[in-house]
Amino acid sequence: MDLLTILTPLVAGVALGYFLRKRRKLSLNKATFWIIIILIFSLGFSMGSNNKLLISFPHVGLKTIVMLFLTLFFSIIFVKIARKVVNLQ
């Protein structure tokens, strides 16, 4: 999938949602729930049927920890700096 295939449905959704603002109630909870379940099921399926990935799984642990902690560290630091710069209480 390319950039356009991924971003078109998102932009189309935002535009449609904007026009639906005047409508009274719009509940998408059930639809979202089932889409997520199907999506995560097929993610699991793709991972499970990928032998190369299953072999490399022990290495995923270390990568996850490093990425997680660096992401959180820089997020916190950058927010701290940004708050000082714009003087946000």
Binding site: L20, L28, T32
Partner: peptide
Amino acid sequence: LFNFALVALLFVMGIIFGVD
């Protein structure tokens, strides 16, 4: 199924963002 659900999720989330 994977691609369809991914596109569907982006579309539905788009609506949720837009309608808010």
